[in-house]
Structure formats: structure tokens, C-alpha cells
Design a protein around this nucleic acid. Structure first.
Lengths: 227, 227
DNA sequence: ATATAATGATAGTAATGCTATTATATTTGA
DNA sequence: TCAAATATAATAGCATTACTATCATTATAT
């Protein structure tokens, strides 16, 4: 990825954290190590106590950054979607042809993250895997409506809206632009999960196969209509 | 639904339970009330202790049926998918035209469950909502590969395979039959979730709108190719 | 009537998810 | 440069969870 990304700070809703983890060394270590730990042990087994031991700090200190591990997950997910959105906007901004633009977009949001920018403390490859395995848990809760109202999911929603708008730009009459956009994002994560754990339920085995699958899907739906 | 369903017992992998909940009154009450409680309070807040209080029984007695609440969720999900599979086979068995058959299938698996059979102790309407909100949590775990090997997900996998086979029957050359099948099942649950909590991310607002969305999607992809 | 199985009651344990308090560094800015 | 403010660390404590174990009681089946 472009080195420029390094200097861009992903803007995350301040209500998600108690204290901005980007504002201190401890905060950055919390983010850095939590990604490694959640990836290793899964979100359920991950605790602030264990994280404290790992970063040589104290449980109570971590609570000064995040109310609980659910909020930390919301933070990591927001960061990931913000990072993806940045890449998307950066890569498609100059494309004026609507079809090309959507193609590029699908490519970006469905390709697996394979290399770490290795500039920041955030390992994007592992974060992508965390999003695949844990993102649903961040919204499949009883608190979803309240948290949505607080704006904890704006970045994700904005991303879906961007894709939806591009779909509409190609076919203004297609009545399911938002559903299709959300299917691409969600469905892509799901296909990667299936590839790793239920290989018989997917055809996406090769590298970046979800991209080919969704490109075929989307343009089978949209293009014939515009002819 | 047909009254016949009443007499059919959904066959669930014996490893999921310690003692078959269908084999006793207490077992049936565990299933019946757990559905109500998980629907009400969400899977996270639900505990065997609370369930015990609700059914006027003891925590330890419930542990004689299910090792833990995760296994109970696997049981409920398997029952749901088995029930859906039964409906699907029942309704499509006699259809020989591949397109009609897939149409009917999509209709069945994407339509929201609106009425309870009210014959058994299982409330299918609430169970459908539980599947929408909690099913992902049953497989997004670190134990997934071991549990898959134990066969805890066979019914779900069989269902996806059935749909995949029907897709292949229409277009043998379409290279993503399994991915499309899994997208229909998963995506449908997701669209219902979005409808209830992120309405701006979906176009499926009307009753059974996911059915229309997926019918359009699938046949835009498959039919043009066969012409 | 007796053995067997199912259920209920009670207790206990380690871990989790916090909160609170106090002590000790570290930073900063007057 | 020193005091004040701020950040972090250490320790303790508490309610709840997710169990396990034991023993008593109650059906049921032979």
C-alpha cells in the first residue's frame, strides 16, 4: 500500500474509547497487542487481564482506554473499515467510468489483505482476519440499536453507501442497490470464512477468488439491464 | 405449515446433547423456554441458571441435557435448519422443472418465518429470529474445525449442498454454485438483520423482500447464460 | 419391593468483568 | 526547578458466570 496511508489517521468516533489509544505509547501497545491476541486466541478467550500481562501493564490501565473488550472490538473494526474506505476512495477517485469504478471497488473490498503496511503498530493482515472471524459479534447484540444511534458503525455504513451509490450510477433502475452493496461486503467476509473452515460450501479456493465471484455476480446483474 | 410436520422428528447429531431433550418433559421444557429466553435477552445474557429458575428446575439438571449453552445453540440451530430442509424437500420434491424448483427453494429459504406451527413446543417464529441474530456465533469460534469434524453442522451443509445442486442443474457451467448457495442462505439472514437494525443498508423493507431480492439476483446470473 | 434412573438441592471453585483505592512515576508549565 | 497535574501500576475486592461434585429425593420399571 501507498506510503501515504502511513500519515493518515483513521478518524474514529470518540465515544468508542475512554482515552484515545493513539495518544500514548501504552494506548498504541494496547491496539498492537490486542490484534495479535484476539487473532491467536479468539475474541471469547481474550481478556484485558491477559492483555495486561502481555504488554507488561495493568488491567486497570487498559480500562482507562476502553470501557470493555466489546468497545475495543468496535474500535478495531472501525479502524479496519476506515482503512479500507481510505484505500477505496484513494484508488477510485480518479476513475470516471462508472463500471470501471465499481470494478475497482469490488476488487478492493473483496481482496484479502495479504500484506502488512508494516509502518504502523497495526497489523492489517491479522486485523482483516479478525474482521472475518469477529466482526459480526460486534453488532449481533441486544445493544445494537443504542450503539448504532451512538454512531459506532458510521464508517461501515458509509462504505456500504459508497458502494450502493456506485451501483446506482451504473443502473439507476436496479431496485436493490443497498442490499447488493451490503451483500458484497458481508458476503466477501463470509466466503473467506467458508474457504478456511467449510471449503465444501464455497468455490472460492484460489487466492482472491471472492473478487472473481463478486465481479461476476454484480456485473451479471447490472450490465445486461443497461444494454 | 402442513400438519404432517408435526409427526416428523428432526434428527440431530447425538454428540450435540448429553441426553436427548426430546426424550423427557424436562428436556422439552428446556428447549421451549430457552427459545423464549434467548430471543428475549440475547444469547450473551442467557444462562442455565436463569433458565433453571424460569422452568422451575435446577441448573445442574439442565447440564444433564447440554454440556453448555453453546451446545444448546448448536442444537437449536440444527433443529431450525433441519426443519427448513424438511419444508424445502417436501415442497420441491415433485417439481421437475429445474428453474421452478430453484424458485420454490429460494422462496422457502428466504421467506421470514411468520407463523408458528403451534403443534410442538418449538416456536418457529422466535427460533427464526434467534437464527438471524445468533447463528453466526455458533461457528465463529476457535473450536470450529473440531466441531465441524464432529458433524455439528451437517444439516446446514446439506442444505447449502442441495441448493448448490439445484443451481448446477440449471447451469452446469456456472463456476460458483456453492458460493451462490451459501450467499443465499447467509445473505438472507443478513438482510433480515439489516432490515431491523440498519435499514439504510438494505432495500428489503417490505414483507418477504429478501425473497424478491434473491430471486432477481440468482436468475439474473443464471438464466441469461442458458439462453 | 427393590433396584435404577431422573431430578433437585446445596455447595464449592476458578475465571471473568469489572470498580475502587492508593502509590508511584512522568510530564508540564509557571 | 519545583509543584501540580496527569498517567500508570499495584493491589484488593465483589458479583456473576460457568461449571463440577455430592447427596438426597422421587419416580419408574421389573
Amino acid at each position: 500500500m501507498d506510503r501515504l496511508l502511513q500519515s493518515v489517521k483513521i478518524n474514529i468516533n470518540e465515544k468508542i474509547y475512554v482515552k484515545d489509544p493513539e495518544s500514548s505509547d501504552l494506548g498504541r501497545r494496547i491496539i498492537e497487542e490486542s490484534i495479535l491476541m484476539i487473532h491467536d486466541m479468539g475474541f471469547e478467550s481474550f481478556t484485558f487481564k491477559k492483555l495486561g500481562v502481555k504488554i507488561g501493564s495493568n488491567e486497570s490501565s487498559i480500562y482507562r482506554y476502553f470501557e470493555n473488550k466489546h468497545k475495543l472490538l468496535l474500535y478495531l473494526a472501525s479502524w479496519y473499515w476506515g482503512w479500507l474506505e481510505y484505500q477505496l476512495v484513494f484508488a477510485t477517485n480518479s476513475i470516471s467510468n462508472p463500471k470501471e469504478k465499481l470494478e475497482k471497488t469490488i476488487e478492493i473490498v473483496t481482496k484479502g489483505t495479504e500484506e502488512d503496511s508494516s509502518f504502523s503498530h497495526i497489523n492489517e493482515v491479522l486485523l482483516n482476519k479478525i474482521v472475518i472471524n469477529e466482526y459480526s459479534k460486534s453488532y449481533l447484540t441486544k445493544e445494537i440499536d443504542a450503539e448504532n444511534k451512538e454512531g459506532y458503525f458510521i464508517i461501515y455504513k458509509r462504505l456500504v453507501t459508497r458502494i450502493s451509490d456506485m451501483i446506482k450510477a451504473i443502473d439507476a433502475d436496479y431496485p436493490y442497490a443497498s442490499s447488493l452493496a451490503s451483500t458484497i461486503l458481508e458476503g466477501s467476509l463470509h466466503q473467506y470464512f467458508l474457504r478456511d473452515h467449510f471449503p465444501s460450501l464455497t468455490d472460492c479456493h484460489a487466492k482472491n477468488a471472492p473478487t472473481a465471484y463478486f465481479l461476476n455476480l454484480v456485473f451479471s446483474i447490472l450490465i445486461p439491464k443497461t444494454k
